[in-house]
Design a protein around this nucleic acid. Structure first.
Lengths: 225, 225
DNA sequence: GGGAGTTGTGAGGGATTTGTGAATGACCTA
DNA sequence: TAGGTCATTCACAAATCCCTCACAACTCCC
């Protein structure tokens, strides 16, 4: 069955959680601080991490961030307080669920099961944007293919391209494209978009993005290429 | 930003979803049962509704149906089981997307964004001006078609042509056409319009724009061609 | 047909807009 | 801390477009 890594500096809690999880049929790894957690995660490859936010030394947030960088492992956060700030950072890091202390171990086990089920069913129907036969943008994976060739785009580049490719042929103003990059059109120099367009063209080829003088840019429809 | 109404009778789920959505920049309204949902939808005018299919009392399906009757609001369904029947009725009611429980809040937020994006794109009815069978001006795309052939017009040219094509047969003075080009009729040489007309005619053909001596120009009605 | 006024048109100046390489600074990583 | 990536900004070159001008062609009215 699944392996769970429990990270907390209070031995009492670790023990309690371990008992419940093992009784529930899980294999349990434990760690008492950040560095140990990262080491164990690397070697033990857990299917899920239960992580206390307040750790001595390396902070729980740093641990979460490092874990995220290294892989896709789901994380359940334990926060000592209901404080807004804690929730916020937890969410920012994309925790899959959170529990505030004190919590019921039974509930924790239930949440672990739920998150694992989700992660499993995370048959995330990958949203793929296709334009004609030779352009393919896998949005959740941020993967782009142009004419069969895989192209590495940065985050901003990918967002600009996907915004345009969703409605090929339509003209987008620089301001609209800025919206696509930052959540909301931050006050920002519109010509930053020009720089991105230049870089995108260099990577994917000139034929995909057309300049509409005095207005903006558009993704060329396949029929016209 | 957008307002989302979350309807579910499990407070924990409502809380989790609310946290994630608010963190994502959305304003969140909540309701725990059908009647409350309808009331809140009426007063709060949400941009999207996240709706649990299994509600106590008034059923989720009824709520969806009522929402549909009252407006255009997009709906994301939450269904408890993966049962085919649930999916079917949900989609039948025109749910814009659905998620089966347990779901990842992160994924829900992603779906919310996707549905809003779609709804937004759809509500921008691509305004198309048609004159007869052979002239088509797609305004947001700044695309012109004359007799089946796609014609590239500059911004000013496109604005002049669409102003005239909106009311075929009507005569426009040069001053009125200048208004169409610059936002307001700037003091400017009216004969600049002549130059544009010349260029437009060269691109689309002579038969579409007629000169009205001493007055201005007009877009020829199809019957006269 | 003649003349006055109006429109068609080609060409070029000049303003605006875009392309682009390089510099800067933020952020992350080793 | 040093090095890398990336987003942004800047400055200048290049491209594009709008407007104007000058003159030819046309229309209308007498």
């Amino acid at each position: 069955m699944a392996t769970i890594l429990v990270v907390d500096d209070e031995p009492r809690i670790v023990q309690l959680v371990r008992d419940y999880l093992e009784h529930g049929g899980f294999t349990v790894l434990t760690a008492a601080d950040g560095p140990a957690a990262l080491r164990t995660a690397r070697t033990g490859r857990p299917d899920l991490v239960v992580l206390d936010l307040s750790l001595p030394g390396l902070d729980g947030l740093d641990v979460a961030r490092s874990l995220r960088r290294e892989g896709e492992v789901p994380i359940i956060m334990l926060t000592a307080r209901t404080e807004e700030s804690d929730k916020l950072v937890g969410l920012e890091l994309g925790a899959d669920d959170y529990l505030t202390k004190p919590f019921s171990p039974k509930e924790l086990v239930a949440r672990v099961r739920a998150v694992l089920r989700r992660a499993d069913a995370a048959s995330t129907p990958s949203e793929v944007i296709r334009v004609g036969t030779d352009v393919e943008l896998d949005v959740p994976r941020m993967e782009a293919r142009f004419g069969g060739r895989r192209v590495d785009l940065t985050k901003s580049e990918f967002q600009i391209v996907s915004a345009m490719a969703r409605q090929p042929g339509r003209v987008f103003t620089r301001s609209q494209l800025l919206d696509a990059v930052r959540g909301v059109a931050f006050e920002s120099y519109e010509r930053a978009i020009d720089a991105h367009i230049k870089n995108i063209r260099k990577k994917v080829g000139q034929q995909y993005i057309e300049t509409v003088f005095g207005v903006g840019y558009r993704f060329v429809e396949p029929a016209e290429r």
